[in-house]
């Protein structure tokens, strides 16, 4: 059976994050939480129990530190989290290449979190709660999640839905374009979002200095990083030879 994307041809959305531009301000984390109806952390929350869909790591290198935003890599090959879910709550959307996590189907066994090498998945350890009145400001394009379920970055799929609907309202056909919240919010314009089926974007992702996290695992992540600094590439990429190069330089 052939699967056709709902509007136009299938896309393979991806990101290119420029580590030389990222200054670790965390605007992407805040924009993401606001966009995706992530409840504010409760008093006892720790960085390890928080609901961050994107986390910015500070990585010490031989020279000055680098900042690495890590979100769901939307793995394309042998996606580790999809095959492990016992009840098909995770799948890969063929029309966008986005790994979909459906909290309403989720049992909360957290096996997918154990499977994810990027630790990009988070668990709702308690009931989500918003300060009084703030529910009114929730994003209607994103459904809030329940306690006991897993959630993660989906490249702002609510914005994709909105873009598709807006195109249909105008009677347009063909592919849609949209921008995830983190990309929009980044003051340094360190994150670029695009379709890897688009030759120009794909070429940029594979240009010199670009790499992906833990590439030897064979997960085929669709988030690319680039840096001109060898020591940063050595500390971040997880490639042994890169690490050696990084130490030498």
């Amino acid at each position: 059976m052939t699967r056709r994307a709902t509007p136009g041809k299938a896309a393979r959305y991806g990101m290119i994050i420029d580590l030389d531009r990222c200054n670790g301000c965390g605007a992407c984390m805040i924009a993401c939480a606001v966009e995706n109806n992530v409840p504010p952390p409760d008093a006892k929350a720790t960085p390890r129990t928080g609901l961050n869909w994107v986390r910015v790591f500070r990585v010490e290198t031989a020279t000055r530190p680098a900042f690495v935003p890590v979100m769901c890599m939307q793995c394309g090959d042998e996606t580790p989290c999809v095959s492990v879910c016992p009840q098909n709550a995770v799948d890969v959307d063929p029309s966008t290449g986005v790994v979909g996590q459906i909290p309403e189907r989720c049992l909360g066994c957290r096996y997918c979190m154990a499977a994810c090498p990027y630790q990009a998945r988070v668990f709702n350890w308690r009931d989500p709660q918003w300060p009084a009145g703030m529910e009114q400001a929730l994003n209607p394009n994103v459904s809030a999640r329940q306690r006991g379920t897993v959630e993660k970055c989906n490249f702002c799929h609510g914005r994709w839905h909105a873009a598709v609907e807006a195109a249909a309202n105008e009677g347009k056909t063909g592919s849609v374009s949209y921008t995830p919240a983190c990309v929009e919010a980044c003051p340094a314009q360190a994150i670029e979002f695009g379709d890897l089926n688009d030759a120009a974007f794909a070429a940029k992702a594979r240009a010199a200095g670009a790499f992906r996290l833990l590439e030897p695992l064979g997960t085929g992540p669709k988030v690319y990083y680039r840096t001109g600094r060898a020591e940063v590439r050595g500390a971040v990429s997880g490639l042994i030879e890169e690490a050696k190069n990084g130490q030498r330089s």
């Binding site: 016992p86 009840q87 098909n88 989720c106 096996y111």
Partner: peptide, 26 residues
């Protein structure tokens, strides 16, 4: 107790993912 949504335990039977070791275990 360990799973987040124990009332959904039947989902594994109703919508099993045959590729998941956890479904087999269940």
């Amino acid at each position: 107790v360990d799973v987040g949504q124990p009332l959904r335990a039947w989902f594994t039977y109703w919508y099993p993912n045959a590729h998941s070791m956890l479904a087999e275990v269940t």
